[in-house]
Amino acid sequence: MRNKKVSEQRILQNITVKADSFECSITADIAVFGYVDHRLKLLLTKRSVGEFTDHWMLPGGVMEAHENIEDCTHKVLFALTGVKNIHFEQVKVYSNINRHPIKRVVTVSFYALVRPENHPLFLKGNVEQIAWFDLDEIPKNLGFDHAQIIHDAHMYLKNNLKDRLVMGELLPKKFTLSELQGLYEDILGLELDKRNFRKRIFQMGILKSTGEVKAGVKGGPILYDNPTAKKP
């Protein structure tokens, strides 16, 4: 009985945070998806210093002592690409022991969905190239475990579409149901049944009619308000 108690105490010691507990660096990696001409694209950077200098990577960087992970994400995006003030969502945490060649690094991944024309890019810091890539033309020479992070972020985005409205700046302030369905079809890469799609959208109880119709379109489709559109 005594040996069992000693064993339980040792287990408790191993799961309790102490001053000398193992520490590692935490980073943020952001999959920024762009919606251009009915196609999804991904923003990648190539850096002139650091590991994998000849590889394309997601915008990413280390969290500092005074930051939380969201602060770090905003900092990294602006520091590497010039992109700022965008909405992003957390996808997953990656903690494989050997995922970084220098030291133990845990990364938290995020995704964002934007219209590239709303976010001019700037070469900043040690970034030597920055570009949007079609999802079916992602370079093979990706750094770290970013191929897996990209795949997971894309799947997370598509799964999100099934349960909630994800549109933000991708649709105008006022839009029709046909425009909304077209957006979903472009992102999911498949054709949706019109009746089932509208039934599912209305079941969410989020859409609000503006009481207006779209001028110049046959049938005068109703316009709905985009609650997530940026204010002018």
Rank of each mutant, 00 (worst) to 15 (best):
A229S: 10
C72A: 15
V17F: 07
V166L: 15
P120W: 08
I138Q: 02
I30V: 14
K75S: 13
H151R: 13
E70C: 10
H38E: 15
A31F: 03
T81Y: 06
K18Y: 01
L180C: 02
D71L: 02
Y156L: 01
L58I: 06
R104L: 13
K231Q: 11
S48V: 03
P172H: 05
I102G: 02
Q203Y: 07
S109A: 15
Y184Q: 01
G211F: 06
I102Q: 15
G125H: 05
H146I: 04
N14Y: 08
K174T: 10
G219R: 03
K174L: 10
L43S: 04
G211H: 06
N96P: 00
V76T: 10
V36L: 12
R39H: 15
G189N: 03
H74Q: 13
R99G: 09
P101W: 08
K140G: 08
L165E: 07
E23L: 13
F33E: 04
L170D: 00
D20L: 05
F52N: 11
R47C: 09
K230S: 12
F175T: 01
T228E: 14
L142S: 02
P101A: 07
T53K: 11
M155H: 12
G61N: 05
L192F: 04
Y35G: 00
S48C: 08
T53W: 00
A147F: 05
E70K: 11
V105H: 05
F144T: 01
N226W: 04
N159D: 12
S48I: 08
I130K: 07
G125Q: 06
N196G: 14
Y184A: 02
Q9H: 10
A79D: 15
T45Y: 00
D163G: 12
R198S: 12
N14F: 06
E128A: 08
L58H: 07
I26W: 10
E70F: 12
A215H: 10
A79Y: 03
R115V: 09
S209P: 07
R2M: 11
V62E: 14
K194E: 15
K124W: 00
L77S: 03
H154A: 10
Y184K: 01
D37Y: 09
K103C: 14
